[in-house]
Nucleic acid binder design. Structure first.
Lengths: 257, 257
DNA sequence: GTGGCTTTCCCGGTTACCGGGAAAGCAAGG
DNA sequence: CCTTGCTTTCCCGGTAACCGGGAAAGCCAC
């Protein structure tokens, strides 16, 4: 029973758009090219239907076709770039994130919560190519990332309970897997306003993160800095990180007027 | 006898997906938020239909809704980022573009042709925020941009004739508007392998560009460097630009194996 | 309150989608 | 060369999902 986590759609399963979306979401970072049969298998849709929908998506430039291989198309890049640019939070934060990167020379991320995961809205600096653990627009679990923990620390009890209920699967030897320990960790983050990820998500990657909260105190995003265990100095990075967070907060409230 | 609208899409005008696409493409860089009525007017679709489709798009996270305002949603950002990352050309070129930017400290663009326009596939450096004339995923006319002219110079006669037929509208006082002069310009670009944009598209922006061509000599992309008229030195930038182009070409042919 | 505008809901008609099935390619293997 | 197995493409009758007019419900501004 492989129901995707985002199984929130009510009666939308059989609409044309939902089917097209299911097909497009077959593509992942690991599988950039798929054939008709691949997608038919993954979605469980009959291949004649997939065939028809693929044709339409190609015409709309949402997909590209080379022989029997399909890839995500330029239309999506176009709309996606627009979506990124028109995101209020991202736009407000972007200059400050660039400034933070310039000051620290360390990769900077802006993440938002989405269910039990976080989504990277912006990435400044990072390795231009190579085995980057994070991708713009990509997802990571909340419970083992700096940004995720920073936001969970200020989330509803309900939210935290949900995350614990889903289980703290060990992603590395350092992942916090005990619910008690995890709650203590969140309490510490609330005290200090700073969350650390000590190789809990990826070996060889540590982070410092701080949340951004709205008027009601709810976490809406987090800024994180990451690097290699030896080279990243959390103590030194905390002040500029907090300053950047403060600047973003101001920019947001100013823009709201 | 209903006149068949001889537009681009064959019989795809009335499909669910085409309607959804038309709605999403209502959003532009200048209009990040639209209401139901806005979109009904722009698409010419009845508002009850727009309403229904909007609901579905929101559920699929292609759009977000705040009160009566709609914006492009995170689902598009997610797919768009994947599409960008999975683009062969972009991936092959990216490290070299970063290197070129590091060496020149000048904004670097990677553009591809699309009809009579160019699309920016990648942008390295550029102003992090502010009145950037170019956007990732954005379009510009081919005839007045460095990258566009670099590609046109090596395009089929048919293509060039099409562009000239569409007219060389003056975008600034410096835009080349005379077909004869434009052909001479292309000939010069073919000779030197380098195209210049001397504020022909935007006042205060000049570019140096060079094309990337496939095995058959057809232009598939262009790399451009741009800056302010006084500060950008085309002579000095040409060698690193050509080197980067050569590196990308090699990376592409290597990857093809 | 009143008028104008936008958004939402409803429902019968019909059209565009559905998917089984068969044919057409394609690549190995006998 | 023919067979075998697989993927992709085409076709077509049935029907469910979409369509859009119209009316109701909000929402402002006057």
């Amino acid at each position: 029973m492989t129901v995707p986590a985002t199984a929130a759609a009510p009666g939308l399963e059989s609409s044309m758009l939902a089917r097209a979306a299911r097909i497009m979401y077959c593509f992942t970072a690991a599988t950039p090219e798929l054939t008709l049969t691949d997608m038919a298998r993954r979605t469980g849709l009959p291949s004649s239907s997939v065939h028809r929908i693929l044709d339409q998506l190609v015409q709309l430039r949402a997909l590209e076709r080379a022989g029997s291989r399909y890839r995500l198309g330029l239309g999506l890049l176009e709309l996606g770039a627009l979506a990124a640019q028109q995101n209020r939070l991202r736009e407000a934060a972007s200059p400050h994130l660039h400034r933070l990167h310039a000051a620290t020379r360390v990769p900077v991320h802006l993440a938002i919560p989405d269910g039990h995961e976080i989504i990277y809205l912006e990435k400044v600096g990072g390795p231009p190519a190579g085995g980057a653990p994070t991708r713009l627009g990509g997802r990571q679990p909340a419970y083992c990332t700096g940004a995720g923990k920073a936001m969970l620390a200020f989330a509803d009890e309900e939210e935290v309970a949900g995350v614990l209920g889903a289980g703290l699967a060990p992603r590395t030897p350092a992942t916090i897997t005990d619910p008690q320990a995890f709650r203590r960790e969140l309490a510490g983050i609330r005290e200090r306003g700073i969350a650390l990820d000590r190789e809990e998500n990826h070996r060889g990657v540590v982070c410092v993160a701080t949340p951004l909260r709205d008027g009601l105190g709810r976490p809406v995003a987090a800024i994180s800095l990451c690097g290699a265990p030896g080279r990243l100095n959390p103590q030194a990075l905390t002040p500029p990180l907090l300053m950047a967070a403060r600047d973003v907060r101001r920019a947001l409230s100013a823009r709201r007027g």
